[in-house]
């Protein structure tokens, strides 16, 4: 019980912390790729603290509800990941967060916010099935949806699920809002939807969504690390390489539109998962 308590507390504190640090590193690396120096490592934290201290400005009070719910769901997902709970359940809870984010964006009447919300829904439509299929792959490999079973494996899952790992990478690109999938909102605002679904979240509420996004990042990278769960160094390495790839992709791609995303995401993702799953079934 105490062990669980510690784990939960650790997840609640370190989940966003790790996510924030990764985001800070991301910004520095991206800047370097663009021949810039970039902000300090702790920049995301400065941003969030500043946002928390800003004037409370709201468009619709229910946005406050949705931002809170998003954060709650995202952190529960991280907690469950740390508790090595059921993978499918974690994915469902993670989806709850996204849905609330979208509903909050809908509650503003600004068309930018609403179209952003729609695009986010389309992004979810694109990556949710893929995530589930990855989880199915994990199940087929370990015989269980529990993360604990992954840790009980003797050799890294990556060897058996290489294509599904690629699918997870695809999902990660969408979820982290990297080009070519930064459709609903993006880190820098030069896009047709201004800030998309985050347009009308402001001040402290924006801070909440940002923290929740860190949690999401931590969660997905945690998921990635499961593919080399046998060795902590291997896991770390895998996550690092994956994330570097994400940054690289972000910097060598233009933003595409959602039709392309659905076509490519589903086409590529489903095909890769199919190949990998069929192979697993056949075994």
């Amino acid at each position: 019980m105490i062990r669980h308590g510690i784990l939960i507390a650790a997840a609640l504190i370190f989940g966003p912390l790790v996510g924030g640090l990764i985001s800070g590193m991301d910004r520095i690396l991206t800047a370097r790729v663009q021949s810039r120096i970039g902000p300090p490592l702790l920049q995301p934290f400065y941003d969030v603290i500043k946002l928390l201290g800003k004037e409370k400005v709201v468009v619709n009070v229910w946005q406050a509800f949705c931002a809170n719910a998003y954060l709650t769901a995202a952190s529960i997902a991280v907690v469950l990941l740390c508790l090595r709970s059921d993978l499918l359940l974690i994915l469902f809870i993670q989806a709850v967060g996204s849905v609330f984010l979208v509903v909050g964006a809908f509650s503003s009447t600004s068309p930018y916010s609403q179209i952003g919300a729609h695009r986010e829904l389309l992004q979810m439509l694109c990556y949710e099935p893929l995530l589930i299929l990855v989880a199915v792959g994990v199940y087929l490999q370990t015989g269980s949806f529990r993360i604990a079973a992954v840790h009980a494996l003797h050799q890294p899952m990556l060897l058996k699920l290489p294509f599904l790992f690629l699918v997870l990478g695809l999902v990660l690109t969408i979820k982290l809002r990297k080009s070519p999938f930064d459709l609903s909102t993006s880190h820098h605002a030069h896009q047709e939807l201004v800030k998309g679904l985050l347009t009308d979240y402001s001040g402290p509420l924006l801070a909440l969504t940002e923290i929740a996004h860190w949690c999401d990042t931590a969660l997905l990278l945690g998921f990635c690390s499961l593919f080399w769960a046998t060795n902590p160094i291997g896991a770390l390495l895998l996550v690092a390489v994956t994330y570097l790839m994400e940054i690289w992709i972000d910097n060598v791609c233009a933003r595409m539109n959602w039709r392309w995303m659905l076509g490519y995401g589903w086409g590529m993702g489903m095909a890769l998962s199919l190949v990998n799953l069929v192979w697993l079934y056949a075994r």
């Binding site: 991206t30 663009q34 021949s35 080009s179 030069h190 910097n251 791609c253 233009a254 933003r255």
Partner: peptide
């Protein structure tokens, strides 16, 4: 133009 289709690094270059 590069920025208009979300290619930030090209914009910078």
């Amino acid at each position: 133009f590069a920025d208009s289709f979300g290619f930030e690094s090209l914009f910078m270059q």
